[in-house]
Computed example of a mutant assay.
Amino acid sequence: MYKSEFTIIALVITSFLLTGYFGYTNYHDKQRLERDNFALTSQIEQLQHTIARNNQIIADNERSKRELENQSISRQEQINEQLSNNDCANQLVPVAVSNSLYNRAKGVRKSTDTSTPAK
């Protein structure tokens, strides 16, 4: 019976050691997971702030674009009004001058076009 008591004591000690080892490992894994969770939560919050800031920038840019378009239309209407009674405005412009002005305006519009990425 001495041998069975020794076996029982060995099993109790072994199970105690294994329980302690697994508990220790579990505790450290839990601590690591909590740190990782906190870091990921912080990164998500930073990304959400970045997204909100970028969305605001996009909205501001769209509003500025609409304002510039409205100003352009308004100025074109003013120019048309001022030229309506001007004899010079009713004369034909030479084709070479007309083409030059058209190409210059086209180049200016192309350089400010934000719909296509710059190369």
Rank of each mutant, 00 (worst) to 15 (best):
V12P: 04
A118W: 10
S74N: 07
R63D: 10
V93R: 06
T7A: 11
I51N: 03
A89E: 00
N54K: 11
E5Y: 09
L11Q: 09
V108L: 14
L40K: 08
S115Q: 09
K106R: 15
A118L: 11
A52E: 12
Q91K: 14
I79S: 04
I57C: 01
N37C: 06
L68E: 07
I44V: 15
N86H: 03
S115D: 04
A39C: 00
E69R: 13
P94A: 00
S4Y: 09
R104L: 14
T14V: 09
V95C: 02
T7S: 11
I13F: 10
Q91L: 11
Y27M: 00
C88D: 12
Q46F: 06
S72K: 04
I44M: 07
E77N: 12
P117Q: 05
C88S: 13
T19G: 15
N61S: 08
E62Y: 08
T41K: 14
R32C: 00
K65L: 14
Q48M: 06
S74L: 07
E81W: 10
T112S: 13
L47E: 06
S64Q: 13
T19S: 15
V95L: 15
L11I: 10
V97C: 02
T41V: 05
Q48R: 15
N80S: 14
N61V: 03
K65A: 13
I51D: 08
L11R: 09
R109G: 02
E81F: 10
A105I: 02
Q91D: 08
Y24N: 04
N80G: 03
M1A: 09
Q76K: 11
D60F: 03
I44E: 06
Q56C: 06
N80F: 08
N26A: 15
F6A: 15
Q46D: 12
T50C: 05
T50I: 06
E45D: 13
A105K: 04
G107R: 12
V93Q: 09
R75F: 07
R109Y: 05
K119V: 05
I73Y: 07
A59T: 13
D87W: 11
A59P: 03
L11G: 08
H28G: 02
V97A: 07
L92M: 08
S64R: 10
K110Y: 01
T112G: 05
